[in-house]
Amino acid sequence: MKHLLSTGSLSHKQAVRILDTAGQMAATQAREIKKLPTLRGRTVVNLFFEDSTRTRISFETAAKRLSADVINFSAKGSSVSKGESLKDTALTLQAMGADAVVIRHHASGAPHTLAHSGWTHGAVINAGDGTHQHPTQALLDAFTLRRHLSGPGDVTGRDLAGLRVAIVGDVLHSRVARSNVQLLHTLGADVTLVAPPTLLPVGVDAWPAAVSYHLDEVIDTKPDAIMMLRVQRERMSSAGGGFFPSPLEYTRGYGLDARRLAAMPEHAIVLHPGPMNRGLEISADAADSPRAVIVEQVANGVAVRMAVLYLLLAGSEGTQDETRHDQTNDQPNDQTTKNETKVDA
């Protein structure tokens, strides 16, 4: 694994390994001194062609806690509608010696293009591309699901086998949904997509997920978790007279409110990738309920991004050759983490 572009290319082993590593990272973050020296002298560039303060800060925090140098490059506002700027920006970053480029771009596939163009030699991490993928979001969601729902005790090494997860909302435009469907499927969960038919892509029937148009029916099947997707208000007024008739009608059909929350099983949790549209896809009751793990998702995001940066950058022995046995790969990595933590503490 040289880059992280899509959850579709992660094997079960790789995915579990990232979650396990994130678990170790999270443990270090509970300590008073959070910083690890692992990536000292390495440069991580946050290349954001699209505004997302929360994702950028999460990656920045993750990189800094691993002692990497961070360069934030916001290309928004410059003439990024033409592709030259991606190429020229990448060449500039290459000249600066970027070891990893974290890229957020409005065009689906831009991270893939960056990774395969020869414009940069560093690892490319997709921080969200168009309506394609947002793999670290799916990984942090999986991490959160595993922590809460995979049973008592140490969750290391576990996957999400048998868990039933409903993903609700604007699947059509959602990179979070695409990433989650692939990753949760790889990890053994059963995914049901819930949306009005206008917000599901043609071709969704080929995805490893069930599809429903009715949230209440899906809640009646007692899912273990429900993931609410952000619905942009603009969707109502865009091409073709909108994807749904009114925010009110959307909320009635697909919003998570106190009534629907109460109908869910006792143990079920509520996720949302943020930022939330309170009152549209999720009511304040649901968002602020103890079963919502939305704030925890943010914290887990840092741990997962630390794990991804660590696995991609810290020593080729652990990351680049995935054909080797995981056991032999895992050991030196665990060692490194522990040793370096000690030094730092």
Binding site: G109, G130, T131, H132, R175, V202, W207
Partner: peptide
């Protein structure tokens, strides 16, 4: 297109 997230 559904998988790649490219408008159809």
């Amino acid at each position: 297109s559904a998988e790649l997230g490219l408008a159809g």
